[in-house]
Design a binder for these strands. Structure first.
Lengths: 245, 245
DNA sequence: ACCTGAGTTCCATTTAATGGAACGACTCGG
DNA sequence: CCGAGTCGTTCCATTAAATGGAACTCAGGT
């Protein structure tokens, strides 16, 4: 199924900083003969996996792809439950919230809730972040054992640091980052899992550093923790530890 | 590229009321030999186009698919501009807002902004709606000429009715629906296009019928109209007609 | 133990993908 | 107006992969 893998490789090119692709982009990025690239993009176009932008030669993901993220959300009871919790916290506090999942060493948001405050962190759903460099990622990595984390990050340089951070996350029951990925932006994250499906998601609130003091932060942690605890209980997530604030 | 088309057919199965698929679901829905279905799902799994839910045999879209809708959004200046407008209107009025695109006779949301009011319409991003049965769909269909609409809906029964509705939409400059798709839910929609790329999007606000009178509705229309007009001017959408309230 | 339904694997056959090269379309600079 | 450069598509013989019937495995149910 070489075509399928090539098609998947093409779709992977759209990650983060590449909103569109041409035949020669694909040739450059994937190193395939341009005859193949041309036919592959054509076939993907005809299958609605891609579409051209206007009448140019630039391609973006096709309409077929638009609803799949939603199908993913619908397939998961856990994501639905987590979304309710974060949506409520987001409207209560006015800050932007996410639900994220981990994929190897990366995390990606599957749902987002825009904050309502005049100064709020803009949602970056669909952007993959390095798991070890974000609160939401660390809240998910903390669910793994030290061995599993070691296996993931072996030879990575950050391992010692990360191991220490994760043990703190495990002890606290939540992950916290202050101006880590983005200057002026703090984040809190709590993870919860569904043992029946082996899924784990992170409930996350991001907010402007200047707007929230420790007391305000702890209120948000408490709100997320309360919702997460109920989910953990209902689904039987025995690994969940209630945050200590 | 028969594999690609089969893979696309599998992905199409996830639309609306099908959150997961098994091998035999695929056999039933697509009528392919089960040997093929089994190998196809396996290949799609290995390409990250699908993933299994837990260790069951049920499949959902894979992680690879999660970011593609975001790449679609990023590829389009028009969607970005429209999102700003709807996000602002959504926070101002507290109602849920969407950006949608048309795909033949269907519309699908590409971005959503949850309302903040206690009573608000829940977002249904990723669900395809019949274009002729929704305000957002009609606001997009209204951009087509009568001939194009006729060609789309020929032999469809609704054509006469629809043509009349669309001429009203064209005259008013906005589409309106009251308790059409969902009891108790009203919607307003205004479309705007980017002539350089031939894209058209609909800016839409949905709200509980009981909460908003005509005056409130007209304020929201005015807010969307103002934003849409600016977009139309900046991008050169000469077909845009400013709503008359 | 025996069935039934779902999923996978095997194998010969058919069908489609591959990539080098030739061809067409467009742009830029002279 | 021409030629060089870039980009995309098409052609064709070769090679590799998809196909589907049948046999096989692995549950859960009786």
């Amino acid at each position: 199924m070489s075509v399928l893998n090539n098609a998947a490789d093409v779709l992977r090119c759209f990650g983060n900083d590449c909103p569109d692709l041409t035949v020669s982009d694909v040739v450059r990025l994937l190193g395939m003969p341009k005859a193949n690239a041309s036919r592959l993009l054509k076939a993907m176009r005809e299958a609605n996996m891609l579409e051209t932008i206007g009448d140019s030669h630039r391609h973006r993901p096709g309409r077929l792809m638009l609803d799949l993220a939603a199908a993913y959300r619908r397939s998961s009871l856990l994501i639905g439950r987590a979304s309710e919790v974060v949506a409520e916290a987001s409207t209560t506090f006015g800050h932007t919230g996410y639900i994220s999942v981990r994929d190897g060493k990366e995390v990606t948001a599957v749902a987002d809730f825009q904050g309502t405050n005049a100064l709020r962190v803009v949602s970056n759903i669909g952007r993959r972040l390095p798991a070890h460099l974000s609160a939401t990622g660390r809240s998910l990595l903390a669910r793994l054992g030290d061995e599993a984390v070691h296996a993931l990050y072996t030879g990575h340089g950050v391992l010692a640091d990360l191991t220490e951070q994760l043990s703190k996350v495990r002890h606290q029951g939540f992950a916290y980052s202050s101006q880590e990925a983005t200057p002026g932006v703090d984040a809190i994250a709590i993870s919860v899992a569904d043992p029946r499906t082996d899924e784990a998601v992170s409930l996350c609130i991001v907010y402007p550093h200047a707007l929230v003091d420790i007391k305000g932060r702890d209120e948000m942690i408490a709100a997320l923790a309360k919702g997460a605890a109920r989910i953990a209980e209902d689904l039987g997530d025995s690994a969940f530890v209630a945050p200590r604030i």
